[in-house]
Amino acid sequence: MDFILNPYYLQIVMFMAINAVLGISIYLTLSTGQLSLGNAGFMSIGAYVSALLTIKAGAPILVSVLCGGVAAGCMALLIGLPVIRLQGIYLAIATLGFGEVVRVIVLNLKITNGALGISGIPSMAVIFGKQLSEVGLSSGMGGLTLQQIANLLVLLVLIAVVAVLVFFCIRVHNSRVGRALAAIKADEKAAEVMGIDVTYYKILMFCLGAVVAAIAGGLAAHLTFYIGPKDFAYHRAVEILLFAVLGGSDVVWGPLLGAFLLTALPEVLRFAAEYREMIYGAILVVMMAFRPQGLLSTQTLRYIKEKLGRSRVNDTSTQPG
């Protein structure tokens, strides 16, 4: 408990949750085999829209975060219709270009305050703290201070968001839609012949990915006090992709694991401060050499299940892979 109450670790766990949401966003777009690097751009749309709504219009956080998601979804639909017919690396670069365009526009708009960014965004912890003290908990509860309770509440909210998204992904994965997506990922042409509306599903997943990325952006904006265009530049786009590639993009647990590891890694490597980046790079190379499909794949999940299954007495469903 001490561990999780330390604001340092708490903050890292919160960043993990945000990154997990981002990982899920890239997982959604990747589920039709599309490599999009535009999720950083959608994230910035979500972050800016929701931050501006809370500051300028005084909207509650929940509303503003959802509005951010909707805004990014509309944007994704708008650019998705023409862009979606591009494939592979072309799509990747076009979406990366979209991210750059968003960044440049944000740099030039007055309302986004250009490179100076938006500071003084009300953070979730502060708002929860206020609400708690209104209901008479200003001196804390159960040995915890008010701030600690507020922080834990924020963490709970974030975990809830991740849980809902994971649940949603698993449901989709096991549904008719999920099988259609898998078919598109495996072979687009064959899927089309089988009567699957490929364009519809591709755009659907592209937009869903954008919405989820924007929600991550909105949450992130209300976690820290400041957002600026630098937070959503090229390095962020690559980072989001890394979550999926390191963790594995076949199953939703993959990007989740990737997000956890890649958020923890820089902190773990802090003691090697100057060599941190070097180690980071080397790990990526080694990782790809040994497990290019990412840490988790369908096989590994089955393998783990098998192991677990064997320890149980009644389970006979193991089958050779």
Binding site: Y8, Y9, I12, T224, D231, R270, A273, R276
Partner: peptide, 20 residues
């Protein structure tokens, strides 16, 4: 602590310095 000039890294670094 290295912040790499990035906001989130700076937050983590400051949190670590204060709490750890």
């Amino acid at each position: 602590e290295d912040t790499k000039g990035q906001k989130n890294e700076a937050i983590n670094a400051v949190n670590k310095l204060i709490n750890k």
